[in-house]
């Protein structure tokens, strides 16, 4: 029972240009062991939504339940992966992956076995004693992934984890995430701005609008469960991509116009 349910969630904060409604009236459900992606134009509240589910940020209204329990703060059964490089440069790969287990006071021998398993799972075997500075950006995100997996969370929240990487590495790591998800059966909520990444990985895609951030479309991905990157070339994939793109294009244009709006003469201030 570790699905995610979001009830009438709203998040607003004050910024320089007034009150920003980042998330507005979102009510959605991620089924247990489901893999759902959120796509949306940059600046929409997708990362904020994820932070609220992770318990890192308090909502203005509504609430979130993970596994039937209301979220009031961070939970060790909920793993979070960040967009920025979050590997700690003074720790080796092994120490980085061990870190949450150490914090949770897991017995030391178990820390080492679990960290090693997670390292092997993401394909970093042999790099245990390296420091992040010796690794590429893609490998560092693997370290972050292994660190999240080492806690054996039942829910994984991933906030554009591969956004800073090049296209090939991103596809490769996406395929790894999919493989790991099939092995570990976690509930995954994945935020991205890349439509093809979203469709390739998930069972369902939520399209989010520019401010106020609402879920404006929910697309079920009826592609084979055991798909790999080659599915990108199929007509079915294309049809899905077009559908999401149509919705998103209008939103991106609106977001772009809004961000670049200058209160020109003749336009009455609201």
């Amino acid at each position: 029972m570790t699905g995610i349910s979001i009830h009438e969630l709203g998040v607003a904060f004050s910024a320089k240009d007034g009150r920003v409604i980042a998330v507005d009236g979102v009510t959605q459900e991620v089924p247990e062991r489901g893999f759902v992606s959120i796509v949306g134009p940059s600046g929409c509240g997708k990362s904020t939504l994820l932070s609220v589910i992770a318990g890192l940020y308090a909502p203005t209204s509504g609430h979130v339940e993970v596994g039937g329990r209301r979220v009031t703060g961070p939970d060790r059964a909920v793993g979070v992966m960040f967009q920025e490089d979050s590997t700690l440069p003074w720790k080796t790969v092994l120490e980085n992956v061990r870190f949450p287990l150490q914090v949770a006071k897991v017995p030391k021998s178990e820390q080492l076995t679990r960290a090693q398993q997670a390292i092997d799972l993401v394909g970093l075997g042999g790099f245990e004693r390296r420091h992040p500075a010796e690794l590429s950006g893609g490998m560092r995100q693997r370290v972050a992934l292994a660190r999240t997996l080492a806690m054996r969370p039942s829910v994984m929240l991933m906030d554009e984890p591969f956004a800073a990487l090049d296209q090939q590495t991103r596809l490769l790591l996406g395929a790894e995430v999919l493989r790991i998800w099939r092995e570990t059966h976690q509930t995954v909520l994945f935020v991205t701005h890349d439509i093809s990444e979203a469709i390739l990985l998930s069972q369902q895609v939520w399209v989010m609008s520019y401010r106020p951030g609402r879920i404006i479309d929910v697309v079920d991905v009826d592609l084979p469960e055991d798909r790999d990157a080659s599915v990108v070339a199929t007509p079915a994939f294309n049809a899905l991509q077009n559908r999401v793109w149509e919705v998103l294009q209008a939103e991106s244009m609106r977001g772009f116009a809004q961000e670049n709006a200058v209160p020109a003469s003749g336009v009455p201030a609201s």
């Binding site: 890192l56 961070p74 060790r76 960040f82 979050s86 949450p100 914090v103 949770a104 806690m151």
Partner: peptide, 15 residues
Amino acid sequence: VYWRLARSVRAGRWQ
């Protein structure tokens, strides 16, 4: 992001 990481794994003040 280091602070967010610490919070997400529920690290205490000393940790």
